[in-house]
Nucleic acid binder design. Structure first.
Lengths: 110, 110
DNA sequence: TTCGTATTTGGCCTAATAGCCAAATAGCTA
DNA sequence: TAGCTATTTGGCTATTAGGCCAAATACGAA
């Protein structure tokens, strides 16, 4: 690949990679509704606190979330809510996959 | 995480994961312009043919691309062109990250 | 059918990821 | 300051991903 393009694709890949995990998608979706502290998110994800903390680190270092301490909790929020617009297209792909699947099944019955 | 939500997030994560690699992003962007055969893509990516073939397998099994043989080449094309709309937001995140970075740098100078 | 080119698969190695537990840290609150 | 709770970090293990090479396969063309 052209060397000049590489950093560009790497930067984009990092962001997509940060999103590409079920627990992190859940976190993102939840944060779109409202900000949450680690404890709350841990509850929702249902994993060890340390695991969730690491997921949040991934999201943060990709620039997807920001954190802020208030009282003795650290609250996380989405930095770019447009992220969830992604999901519209992801769902389109899933729907297309489902159609495809149906077609194939239909073909089998013939 | 609620068991009922898990498959949904896993399905979405699979698609994002399929996109989350520099070479595959290059392939996707290229296929948006026009369909291409493995050889051509191999050339663009600049990796071993077998490596590119495996990347295409990943994209295909996520339902992002479709393939079709014509003459003695196999052509790949994007199945859901909306995929590239993603990139608008990814770029927004990158821009926000850059701003953040600038701010931090500015803060250091003070 | 046989050849030749395009593509995929298998094997192997290395690096990265995700998970948990235990321990360390951070910073309110008293 | 001292203690307490929330959060992060370090260490370990198991699994997955990505790369190349070599070998297998697929299929059009002769």
């Amino acid at each position: 690949m052209k060397a000049s393009l590489k950093p560009r694709y790497e930067a984009r890949a990092k962001i997509l990679k940060a999103m590409a995990h079920p627990s992190r998608l859940l976190i993102i979706e939840e944060l779109q509704k409202q900000e949450r502290c680690v404890n709350e998110l841990t509850e929702m994800v249902g994993a060890d606190t340390s695991t969730v903390s690491k997921h949040l680190t991934v999201l943060k270092s990709a620039g997807l979330v920001a954190d802020e301490r208030r009282a003795n909790c650290i609250y996380y929020r989405l930095r770019c809510p447009c992220i969830l617009d992604f999901m519209g297209c992801v769902e389109d792909v899933l729907a297309a996959n489902a159609d495809e699947h149906k077609k194939i099944m239909k073909g089998c019955k013939k």
